[in-house]
Write a protein that binds this DNA or RNA. Structure first.
Length: 903
RNA sequence: GGGCGCUUAGCUCAGCUGGUCCAGAGCACCUGUCUUACACACAGGGGGUCGGGGGUUCGAAUCCCUCAGCGCCCACCA
C-alpha cells in the first residue's frame, strides 16, 4: 500500500524532478529518421542575455501547448531552442558595464571588447533557457542554437554572398536613421516614431542681391525674402537649396536664382521640384540633403550637393560657422533660432505635433544622416513572400495581421543591414588597398581577387542582428549543408511570436525561406497579445510593474502560470495581469492543479493498484451516469481538438477545465461515489471503476498540453492501460468516440441535475438544515424522465439529501414548488421539516419592511423639490430600486401564499 | 493624415458566421457547510439597460452608420 497522498499538491516538489526525468528519457528529442510526420516550431530566439518575462511566458507556453499536442497526436514534434546575440542590445549592456569602470569600448579596442562581450554572454547567457525548462517547455535541447555559432555564422555569410552575387546586396550613400548614442545606422524598422509636441519655426531667407521678386514680402532694409518652415532649425546650416513647386506662380521666376542663407553666409539656389507643396506653409522648402531623406531625393533630382553638418554624435561639425561648431544639435537649435531672431529673420513660431523617430534600443532621437551603408534590395524578395500569403500558404492568427503584412510587403523599402558596431557578424567584404577592388567572399580571402595584392582590409561593420534571425528556421537545421535535419524538418509549421516583430522577423523569415530554400518556413503564424499590468501599461523594468514568471512558479507552480497566460487572452489580444495581486491572477490555476491532484487521489483510493478494466469490457453494465460522462468526454475531446486546430488555445484550455471540473469532478465523481464504495453491487462498481479510469485518463490527456506537470504526476500514479506509453507526454491524444455519444443520456442527466438543483435551492431558500432530509414529490415531464429519476433515487438521496421520493403532485399540501424547464414539477412538503409558523412570521415581517420602503420611496419621488434638485440619474436610480423592491415583495408574497396552503 | 483593434457583472475575461446554452465563467461579495478527493473545497444567492445614439430585421451583445474613450500599426507634409 502506497503512502497516502497529501490533500494539497506541491508543484515545487514535483515539477523540476519530473522535467529532468522527461529530458533524461529523451522525450523532447526529435528524430529526423522517424517515419512519423514531422511538426516543427522554431522558438523566437530570446536575447542571449535576457531574463524570462511574462511575454516569454505567454508565447512559450503557447508553443509548448502546440508542441505537446502534436507530439501526442503522433507527430515527430520538434521545437528548436536557441538564443540571439542581439547585436546592438547586448553591446549596449556591456558598454554600460564598461562605463561604470569609466571606460569606453574604444579604450579596450575591438578585440578586447569582443572578448569582454563573449565573457559576459557566457556568464549570463543561457539563463533564459534554464528558465524555459522551469516552465515546462518541451524543447529539443540537443539542437540548441545561437546566432553567432559557427554554423549559423556560415549561413549568414553564405546568404550575404549569394545576395551580392544576385545583385540584391549593394553599398550605397543614402540617408539612413542614425543613432547618435549607439553610433550606428539603424533600419527603418529600428527607428520607432513617437508622437511629440514640438514647434515649427518659420525662417526668412533673403534673396540674393539684385534678384527681383515683386510678389514677395520685404525686410526692413528692402530685401525680398522667402519663408521656409522647419522643425529642426539647426539643419538650416546644412541647407544647399530652397525648393519650390515648378508651377507655383509666386516663385516660378525665382527658380535658378539664389538666396542668401543666413548665418552660414552661403548663397544657395532656388530649385524647382514637385516635392514642394504649394498648399503647405509658404510653398517653399529648405533643402538639407545630408540630413533629410526627402531633401536628399530632391537634391539627387536637381543636382544640388549634400553637406553634412553634424558629427556622428550629432554635434555641429566644422562645416558650420565657428559660432555653432561643437554645439550639440539641441543647443545648436536654440542658438540658430536666437540668431535668426536677432537678425529679424524669424518669421513666426508655431506649436506643432509630429512623430519623431527614436532608437528602438536606447530611446535616443534618431538623426537622419547621409552615410555609406550596405543595403538589401527587398522588392524581389517581397514579391514571392506576399504571394505566399495571398495563396493561403502562410496564414495569420488572428487573420487581420495578414493585411498589415500585405501593406508592408507592398510598400517595402530597402533594408539597411550594416551596423557600426563590433558585436555581431562581420560583413564579409574586403577592400584592396592596392587597386581598390571590393572582394565579397565566403572564405576570408588572403589576396585581392583582381590585382593579387595581399593588402586587404575587411569592412569594419557588422550586420544587423536580424540578418541572422531571418535565417533561423533553416540555419538552425544545418543550412547551407543539406543535412538530415534540414530534409526532415524544413519547412516548419507554426510560428508563435509578438506582433512587434512581424516586420523585423516574421516577414523577413518568409522571404528568406522562399529565397534560399524555395519554400515557406512555416504555414501558420500565431501572434500573441502584449502582457500588461492592471492599469493597461506594458510591463517593463523601468516601470517596475513586471511579474517574474519564476516567482510565479515558486508560489503557484508552472502549471498555474501556464493556465493563466493561456486562458487569459486570445490571439492578438492583450492580457492584463495585476502585479500587486498575484493571487487574483494565478490562484485559479493553482486551484485547478489542486483539483486535478485531488481527483487523482480520489481515483487512487477507489481504483487502487487493481489492473485496469476497459469500458468495453463492462459495456453492458454501464449506467446512466457512466454513459453520460463518456458522452461528455467524447464531446470535450472533439471540441478541445477543434479549438487547438484553430489556434484557439484559450478555448481549448477552458473547455478542458469545464469538462474536468464541471462535469467530471462536480457530477460524475459525486454520482459514482456510492457505487465505487460498492453500495450498488459488484457489477455497478466494476462499471463505475472502468468509467472513472477511462474518463480521468482522457481528461488528463486533454489537459496535458496546458498543464503538463500536474497531469503527468497524476497520470503516473494511476493504473496504466495495457500497452500504454511510459509517460503521459508521449501517450496518444484522445479521439472522439461517436459510439459513446449519447444524446439521451445527456438529456436525462441534465434533468437529474435540474431536479437536484431545484431541491438544493429550496433547501437553501427555506434554511433547511444540512442534516435534515426532505421528502420529495415529482411529476415527471415524460416517461423517460420518470424512469431515469426512478433509477437515480440514490443520487437524489445523496446529492440533494432527499429522504424519500414519490411520483405524485402537491395535492394542496403546504410546501415549496419549482417547475423545471422541461415541465417537471418538483415539490417539497415543508410541514414537519421547518417551523412553518416561524417562517410565515419571517416572511410577513420581510414584506412589511419592503412595503415601508416602497411607500417611502414613492413619497420621496413625489417630492418636487427633491426631483428638481436631483440629477436625473439619481431619480432613475430610485425608480430602479423601487421596481426591485416590488419584485422582491412579489416573490415573498408567493412564498407566503404557498406556506399558507392557498395555492 | 490613413488603416485596424478594443469597450459585456467590482476585477480578469468567454460569448464563432444574428433568434434553446443570450445575458455567461473565474475571482471578489453575501448565506450556509470542515458532508473521509479537494476549505486552493462544497452548496445556495445577489449583481450587468452587453460604451452612448441611430438604423436594418419578426427578432441584435451579435449586422450597418455615427459619436466617445482607450490602444496598436502605417505615413516624406517641410
Amino acid at each position: 500500500m502506497a503512502e497516502p497522498l497529501p490533500p494539497q499538491y506541491t508543484p515545487q516538489e514535483n515539477e523540476d524532478p519530473l522535467y529532468a526525468w522527461w529530458e533524461a528519457q529523451g522525450f523532447f528529442r526529435a528524430d529526423p529518421h522517424s517515419a512519423r510526420q514531422p511538426h516543427v516550431i522554431v522558438i523566437p530566439p530570446p536575447n542571449v542575455t535576457a531574463q524570462l518575462h511574462m511575454g516569454h511566458g505567454l508565447n512559450n507556453s503557447i508553443q509548448d501547448v502546440i508542441t505537446r499536442w502534436r507530439r501526442m497526436q503522433g507527430r515527430e514534434a520538434l521545437w528548436v531552442p536557441g538564443t540571439d546575440h542581439a547585436g546592438i542590445a547586448t553591446q549596449n549592456v556591456v558598454e554600460r558595464l564598461l562605463a561604470k569602470e569609466g571606460k569606453t569600448r574604444y579604450d579596450l579596442g575591438r578585440e578586447a571588447f569582443l572578448e569582454r562581450v563573449w565573457a559576459f554572454v557566457e556568464e549570463t547567457g543561457g539563463t533564459i533557457l534554464r528558465q524555459l525548462r522551469a516552465i515546462g517547455c518541451s524543447l529539443d535541447w540537443t539542437r540548441t542554437a545561437f546566432t553567432l555559432d559557427p554554423g549559423l555564422s556560415r549561413a549568414v555569410r553564405e546568404v550575404f554572398v549569394r545576395l551580392h552575387e544576385k545583385g540584391l546586396v549593394y553599398r550605397g550613400n543614402r540617408i539612413i536613421h542614425w543613432c547618435p548614442r549607439c553610433l550606428t545606422a539603424l533600419s527603418d524598422e529600428e527607428a520607432e516614431p513617437e508622437e511629440t509636441h514640438g514647434r515649427i519655426w518659420h525662417l526668412r531667407y533673403p534673396l540674393a542681391p539684385g534678384v527681383e521678386a515683386p510678389g514677395l514680402p520685404r525686410l526692413p532694409d528692402g530685401r525680398p525674402y522667402i519663408v521656409v518652415a522647419t522643425t529642426r532649425p539647426e539643419t538650416m546650416l546644412g541647407d544647399t537649396a530652397v525648393a519650390v513647386h515648378p508651377d507655383d506662380e509666386r516663385y516660378r521666376e525665382l527658380i535658378g536664382r539664389e538666396v542668401d542663407l543666413p548665418l552660414a553666409e552661403r548663397r544657395i539656389p532656388v530649385v524647382g521640384d514637385t516635392y514642394a507643396d504649394p498648399e503647405f506653409g509658404s510653398g517653399a522648402v529648405k533643402i538639407t540633403p545630408a540630413h533629410d531623406a526627402n531633401d536628399f531625393e530632391v537634391a539627387q533630382r536637381t543636382g544640388v550637393p549634400p553637406l553634412v553638418v553634424m558629427t556622428p554624435e550629432a554635434a555641429m561639425n566644422d562645416a558650420v560657422p565657428e559660432a555653432f561648431r561643437g554645439l550639440d544639435r539641441f543647443e545648436a537649435r536654440r542658438a540658430v533660432v536666437a540668431a535668426f531672431e536677432e537678425l529679424g529673420l524669424l518669421d513666426k513660431v508655431e506649436e506643432h505635433t509630429h512623430s519623431i523617430p527614436h532608437c528602438y534600443r536606447c530611446g535616443t532621437i534618431v538623426e537622419p544622416r547621409l552615410s555609406e551603408q550596405w543595403f538589401v534590395r527587398m522588392a524581389p524578395l517581397a514579391a514571392p513572400a506576399l504571394q505566399a500569403w495571398r495563396d493561403g500558404r502562410v496564414r495569420f492568427h488572428p487573420e487581420r495581421f495578414g493585411k498589415i503584412y500585405e501593406h508592408w510587403m507592398e510598400n517595402i523599402r530597402d533594408w539597411c543591414i550594416s551596423r557600426q558596431l563590433w558585436w555581431g557578424h562581420r560583413i564579409p567584404v574586403w577592400y584592396c588597398e592596392g587597386c581598390g577592388e571590393t572582394v565579397v567572399a565566403r572564405e576570408d580571402p588572403t589576396a585581392c581577387s583582381k590585382c593579387g595584392a595581399d593588402a586587404l582590409r575587411q569592412d569594419p561593420d557588422v550586420l544587423d542582428t536580424w540578418f541572422s534571425s531571418w535565417l533561423w528556421p533553416f540555419s538552425t537545421l544545418g543550412w547551407p549543408d543539406e543535412t538530415e535535419d534540414l530534409r526532415a524538418f524544413y519547412p516548419g509549421h507554426a510560428l508563435v511570436t509578438a506582433p512587434e516583430i512581424l516586420f523585423f522577423w516574421v516577414a523577413r523569415m518568409v522571404m528568406a525561406g522562399l529565397e534560399f530554400r524555395g519554400d515557406i518556413p512555416f504555414s501558420d503564424v500565431y501572434l500573441t497579445g502584449t502582457v500588461r499590468d492592471h492599469l493597461g501599461r506594458k510591463m517593463s523594468k523601468s516601470l517596475g510593474n513586471g511579474i517574474d514568471p519564476i516567482d510565479v512558479k515558486q508560489r503557484f507552480g508552472a502549471d498555474a502560470l501556464r493556465y493563466t497566460v493561456i486562458t487569459g487572452s486570445g490571439a492578438g489580444t492583450d492580457q492584463n495581469l495585476n502585479y500587486e495581486n498575484l493571487e487574483e491572477s494565478f490562484g485559479p490555476g493553482r486551484n485547478f492543479a489542486n483539483k486535478l491532484w485531488n481527483a487523482g487521489r480520489f481515483a487512487l483510493m477507489n481504483l487502487g493498484d487493481a489492473p485496469r478494466v476497459s469500458v468495453e469490457e463492462v459495456r453492458a453494465e454501464l449506467e446512466l451516469a457512466d454513459r453520460w460522462i463518456l458522452s461528455r468526454l467524447s464531446r470535450a475531446v472533439r471540441e478541445v481538438t477543434e479549438a487547438l486546430e484553430k489556434f484557439r488555445f484559450q478555448d481549448a484550455a477552458l473547455r478542458g477545465y469545464d469538462f474536468f471540473w464541471g462535469d467530471l469532478a462536480d457530477w460524475y465523481l459525486e454520482l459514482a461515489k456510492p457505487r465505487l464504495r460498492g453500495d450498488a453491487g459488484q457489477a455497478s462498481q466494476r462499471a463505475a471503476r472502468a468509467t472513472l479510469a477511462e474518463v480521468l485518463d482522457g481528461a488528463l490527456r486533454l489537459l496535458h498540453p496546458v498543464m503538463p506537470f500536474i497531469t503527468e504526476v497524476v497520470w503516473q500514479k494511476l493504473p496504466r492501460a495495457q500497452g500504454d506509453a511510459p509517460a503521459l507526454m508521449v501517450s496518444a491524444w484522445p479521439e472522439p468516440r461517436p459510439a459513446w455519444e449519447d444524446a439521451e443520456a445527456e438529456a436525462l442527466l441534465e434533468e437529474l441535475q435540474a431536479v437536484i438543483g431545484a431541491v438544493r435551492n429550496i433547501r437553501s431558500e427555506y434554511g433547511i438544515q444540512p442534516a435534515a432530509r426532505v421528502p420529495l414529490r415529482i411529476s415527471a415531464a415524460s416517461d423517460a424522465v420518470r424512469t431515469a429519476l426512478d433509477a437515480s433515487r440514490r443520487a437524489l438521496r445523496d446529492l440533494a439529501r432527499v429522504e424519500e421520493m414519490d411520483f405524485a403532485s402537491a395535492n394542496g399540501e403546504v410546501g415549496a414548488t419549482a417547475v423545471l424547464r422541461s415541465g417537471t414539477e418538483v415539490f417539497i412538503p415543508l410541514a414537519g421539516v421547518i417551523d412553518l409558523e416561524k417562517e410565515r412570521a419571517r416572511l410577513r415581517g420581510e414584506i412589511e419592511r419592503l412595503d415601508g420602503q416602497i411607500g417611502g420611496t414613492e413619497k420621496k419621488l413625489g417630492n418636487e423639490s427633491f426631483v428638481a434638485r436631483a440629477p436625473v440619474n439619481v431619480v432613475e436610480y430610485e425608480r430602479g430600486k423601487l421596481a426591485s423592491f416590488r419584485e422582491q415583495r412579489e416573490k415573498l408574497a408567493e412564498k407566503l401564499a404557498a406556506l399558507e396552503g392557498a395555492r
